[in-house]
Design a protein around this nucleic acid. Structure first.
Lengths: 232, 232
DNA sequence: TAATCCATGTGGTTGGACCACATCAACTAG
DNA sequence: CTAGTTGATGTGGTCCAACCACATGGATTA
């Protein structure tokens, strides 16, 4: 077993045993190295991996944001992983879109009316009406879909949703340039968003799921993805 | 931007541009360090992250298994990430089980008859009949479910399925000790597996999906998970 | 009293050294 | 000429010692 894996094991045990909780701080790199009888290099390699997994965040200096603290951001970590595998052509974009339809439909069908995430989703729609440029619109769009997924109350589904969205984020941004009429498209997307949220708030899960599926597939089909092999 | 992130960016670009393909070898750590004008340490940190993401595999020595090779194993990488987040209590086991039901039901419904994965699944069932100890049974069980998921032809769903299974693998192993009668349980599981595979081969996707959902939920319910808060 | 300076502790980076390992070519003994 | 041995080579794995940038907070000073 390699040295940095030993460090990883030790930290994972601290987490499992509850000795290290969310928001807690890891010992300094030098302290851990001395305690585990390994070099600081190996400790750093382990911390790097945890950072890539979204389990910790490292900050320099001293005070509030300093040190290596335990966080919980599986979404961005999974997103980076998926993005890399998309780059290797091992994961086709079409499969990611299909999976996104699957997860988001499920979430829309089970979204619980009255949770904070739905209120946030409604606010985001208002902001999208006022959004001027495409990038701002897409950023709000991403947050809307994540909020919708959160309303179902399954943190794993939420995390995977966010990661799928993140994995093809740049890709989606490039696609908008190919659309024939962005204004028309954005108007349609806005209307579809409203319809989805209305269906959810009416407790019509089945309809919400159908609308979500059509919404996502519609966008990528219009942009030239979703049917046929991945163009990337 | 930190130095190792620069290296990551460079490698990701090599992958995106196709200069580095699956099965290809990265330049040696010393060569990359010199080329990118960074220290070998930073290069190593980047390689570590890619290794944790299941994008590369590092091997010492020389020859066939030596050097840093591009691979594609998102499943195990995502599994490790999820396992860590379960350790932080951020991802409840119940949510993972629920997500697994979602993905596997979907896959069972869309499994394509005649693909190699289904043949492998059938062979695994035969091996499970001969499995003596619990661990061997569970290992074959895991492979069966992964094979079933692969039959749907969506690599993202397959990878996520494998990762979910891996994230709670140890957990599932511990649970079997709490079962009242393992022999009875394993007989039931075997029968359910046969029924699922039969439904798939009969092109009865709906029934296959129902059977899979009941199969997974049944196991975890019997073992004391799936309802109520996570016990871990 | 208020502004400044510096000691302290954090992660970030570097260069160099050495190790274990696997291969392959050159060499040597038969 | 063949078969076995040996050493050169190149890979990742590990460690060390030093230095940097940064943020804080207490000591010092105007």
């Amino acid at each position: 077993m390699r040295t940095h894996e030993l460090v990883l094991q030790w930290i994972e045990k601290q987490l499992s045993d509850g000795d290290l909780a969310l928001g807690g701080r890891l010992p300094g790199e030098r302290a851990m190295a001395e305690q585990l009888k390994v070099s600081r290099t190996s400790v750093r390699e382990a911390v790097r991996i945890l950072e890539a997994m979204g389990v910790v965040r490292a900050g320099v200096g001293s005070g509030k944001d300093a040190g290596t603290v335990v966080i919980a951001e599986p979404g961005s970590a999974l997103g980076s992983t998926l993005r890399l595998h998309v780059a290797t052509r091992h994961l086709p974009v079409a499969d990611i879109v299909e999976t996104r339809v699957l997860l988001e439909s499920w979430a829309a069908e089970r979204a619980q009316v009255g949770v904070p995430a739905l209120e946030e989703a409604a606010e985001l729609l208002d902001q999208m009406d006022a959004a001027s440029d495409i990038d701002a619109f897409l950023a709000l769009d991403a947050r809307f879909h994540v909020a919708l997924a959160q309303a179902a109350g399954n943190s794993v589904v939420s995390a995977m949703m966010a990661s799928l969205r993140g994995a093809i984020e740049n890709y989606a941004g490039e696609l908008t340039g190919n659309l024939p009429d962005w204004n028309a498209t954005s108007d349609r997307l806005r209307a579809e968003h409203r319809a989805i949220l209305t269906a959810v708030n009416d407790n019509d899960g089945g309809r919400a799921a159908e609308l979500v599926a059509a919404h996502i597939q519609g966008f990528y089909t219009e942009a030239g993805v979703g049917s046929g092999p991945s163009p990337r």
